[in-house]
Amino acid sequence: MKQKYLFNIMFIGLTMIFTTTAFSEEYVIDQHNKSFQLGGKKIEAITIKAGDTIRFKNEDPFFHNIFSLSDLKTFDLGSFPKGQSKTVTFDKAGLAEVECAIHPEMYMEVSVQ
């Protein structure tokens, strides 16, 4: 009986760890009509939590090349065609400016809390 009680506590503990992990979310941001879009709407800024991931997905019939040279997060996803996507996880709090190298009109700020 005592063992079962211990097991239950362990189980609850593990569940808590898993749910905390599950709290980090994935946002899909489309590159469409040479703009960043979330759920079909153009966005210029997004607020996420530390540990969250953004999936950058190309929905245009030409290449995009998403990058950031911000102190918070430096990355270069390279160029990829329509239908493909790549992810970036933002693990620290701060502000990152994200741009398309090919089309500098495409610009957005990721504020990580």
Partner: peptide, 23 residues
């Protein structure tokens, strides 16, 4: 936008001088 169109010109970095991204 900005594109490398494959001209024979190795001396001019072009847009790279403004934004240090490989493409």
């Amino acid at each position: 936008g900005f594109h490398n169109i494959g001209l024979e010109d190795a001396t001019d970095a072009g847009r790279y001088a403004i934004r240090k991204v490989k493409i």
